[in-house]
Amino acid sequence: MLIGVPREIKNHEYRVGLTPGAARELISHGHQVIVETNAGSGIGFGDDQYSAAGATIVAGAEEIFARADMVVKVKEPQPVECKMLRPGQVLFTYLHLAPDPQQTALLIESGATCIAYETVTDSRGGLPLLAPMSEVAGRMSIQAAAHHLEKAQGGSGVLLGGVPGVAPGKVLIIGGGVVGTNAAKMAVGLGADVTLLDRSLTRLRELDDVFHNSIKTAYSSVDAIDYYSAHADVIIGGVLIPGAAAPKLLRKHHLAAMREGSVVVDVAIDQGGCFETSRTTTHQDPTYVVDGIVHYCVANMPGGVARTSTIALNNATLPFAVALANKGARQALQDDKHLRNGLNIHAGQVTYEPVATALDYDYTPAEQALQTT
């Protein structure tokens, strides 16, 4: 199989679909890899390293999309990239389609086989290709919040860890999954006063055992969000419904009860955001203010630490990329139900039900789509 790696073109996105080491692994299985020039140079993976691994460097994305049997990326394809996809070609990347009708329509029109990292599953019910970036984003969310609490950044001037004689800042984390757990680790490490909300009592018990008395846990309800948000200096939104649009849990009226200059970080923004007042921002212009509350809603947060993120992501995606290349996409998808759960669009059909529901498309089960096309 000929595998192509284009340079990412989203604002301040320096991650790359394959590291030189991952490219070498695929080449060792008998495949060819072509990489757009400077695809990894922003994080220290130069063209010479890809060449040394056996990959071929090409001048532009047009050649990648024209030649490759499978395109491996990080971020969802931008409109110009969607229009270069073709029937039968495999796209392996993050997609986040539920809140993105334009991308969905373009991918349907392309006829390509589009596999989303964020909906691939594992035998434990986890999301193994989303987890590494959720770990990064959860940890970064506290870094971002602490920075933007500074008065010069528009914040309230609160130090999350406090100092002797001054109480620490209060952090509210909504969602006890991978994002929320990693945010809690960082917040506890800074010495913050941390409360975490979740709707799973089993998960709350697990977190209580992990963190002992260093965080407070509470069942997530309308009443709990009302109460804890009013007292928070920072709110982290880490709610996820796999492949579907995130529910809006923090509403505009909650902002009025918060101290001016408090910070909210919506890590669910890739799936449309879990705060009513959220809108997508970039690393170049990461925040805006609504009713005196600083909003940080960067859609590609892990791109801010692109080298760490790229290596972590490749550790998770490489076995699936090898399977797709070795067996061919159709066979690999038929053989592995967990990889098949990542199939969102195939040959013009929407094959992931939450996306079909969110955007009002007919739903075709992946097994059926693979058998009939």
Rank of each mutant, 00 (worst) to 15 (best):
V5C: 10
V5E: 05
H12E: 15
P20S: 07
R24C: 02
G40V: 13
G40E: 11
I43V: 10
G44Y: 02
G46A: 04
S51P: 00
A53L: 05
G54S: 08
T56E: 15
I57A: 11
A59C: 14
A61C: 11
A66S: 15
R67K: 13
V80F: 13
R86C: 00
P87S: 01
L97V: 12
D100H: 04
L107C: 12
T121Y: 12
G125I: 14
L127H: 13
L129Y: 14
A131N: 15
S134G: 04
R139D: 04
R139Q: 09
H147Q: 06
H148T: 05
E150K: 07
K151Q: 06
Q153H: 11
G154Q: 03
V158S: 02
G165S: 10
V166S: 04
G169C: 11
L172M: 11
L172E: 10
G176C: 00
G176H: 00
V178W: 02
A184R: 04
A187K: 11
A187L: 12
L190I: 05
T195P: 14
L196Y: 00
L197Y: 01
L197K: 00
S200G: 07
R203E: 00
R203G: 00
L207V: 02
L207Y: 02
V210G: 00
V210F: 01
A218D: 13
S220A: 15
Y227R: 08
Y228W: 15
A232N: 03
I236G: 05
G237F: 12
P242C: 07
A244R: 10
A246H: 13
L249C: 06
R251M: 15
H254G: 12
H254F: 13
G261L: 01
G261M: 04
V263Y: 03
V264G: 02
D270G: 06
E276A: 09
S278H: 06
T281F: 03
T282W: 01
H283A: 03
D285E: 15
P286G: 15
P286H: 15
D291P: 01
I293R: 02
C297R: 01
V298Y: 06
G303R: 07
T308F: 08
A316S: 08
F320Y: 15
L324K: 11
Q334D: 11
D335T: 12
D336S: 09
K337V: 07
H338S: 09
G342R: 06
N344V: 01
A356Q: 03
T357C: 07
D362T: 03
L370N: 06
T373F: 04
